[in-house]
Amino acid sequence: MASLTVFMIYFCVLREENDLDDEMRVSLFDRLPGLEKNQLELAMEYNKERGIDTKRLESRLKEIESNS
């Protein structure tokens, strides 16, 4: 238990950030073009089938399409 605690303190607190940490911050939607649009369309279809509000999804989809 002590060695795990020491490792977690080192890894989470004391360790300096590196380029791998920067890569982990990049969104999956930024890495794969078109993925967010596809996910929004699927989410809108799912929500419409279940009677859930889709206004927020529609506005984000319009925003993505206007930037393309």
Rank of each mutant, 00 (worst) to 15 (best):
N18Y: 05
G51R: 03
L61D: 02
L40I: 01
D21A: 09
P33V: 11
I52C: 12
I9N: 10
P33T: 06
E63S: 02
D22M: 11
L42F: 09
V26G: 02
L61P: 00
I9L: 13
E23V: 12
K62P: 09
L35E: 02
N38P: 09
S3W: 13
R31W: 00
Y46I: 08
S59R: 09
R56M: 09
E45K: 11
V26I: 12
E16K: 13
E16N: 13
L35A: 06
C12K: 14
E36D: 04
E58S: 02
S59K: 10
V13R: 10
L4I: 13
L42N: 15
A43H: 00
S3L: 13
E58V: 01
E41W: 03
E17P: 01
D19T: 09
E41K: 04
I64P: 00
S66I: 08
A2R: 14
L4K: 14
E23M: 09
N67P: 06
M8Q: 13
I52A: 04
E49I: 11
E17W: 02
L20G: 01
N18R: 05
R56S: 13
V6W: 14
D22K: 10
F7L: 11
R50D: 01
L32C: 05
E41L: 07
L20E: 07
E63K: 04
T5D: 15
G34Y: 00
K48P: 02
Y10M: 05
D19S: 12
N18K: 07
Q39A: 07
K48Q: 05
T54D: 05
N38H: 14
E49C: 08
C12E: 15
R50M: 01
C12A: 15
R25H: 10
L28A: 12
E45V: 08
I52G: 07
E16S: 13
S27E: 04
T54V: 06
L40T: 01
E65G: 10
M24I: 10
F29S: 15
E49W: 12
V26R: 07
E23T: 09
C12L: 15
F29Q: 13
R50Q: 00
N67C: 14
M1T: 07
R25S: 14
K48A: 08
R50G: 01
D22Y: 07
L42D: 11
P33I: 06
V13W: 06
R15A: 05
E23A: 10
E23F: 06
L57C: 04
L14Y: 00
N67E: 15
E16F: 08
N18E: 07
D19E: 12
L35N: 00
A43V: 02
L32D: 06
L57V: 02
M44P: 00
L61M: 01
D19A: 13
L42P: 04
E17K: 10
E36P: 01
M1F: 08
N47V: 08
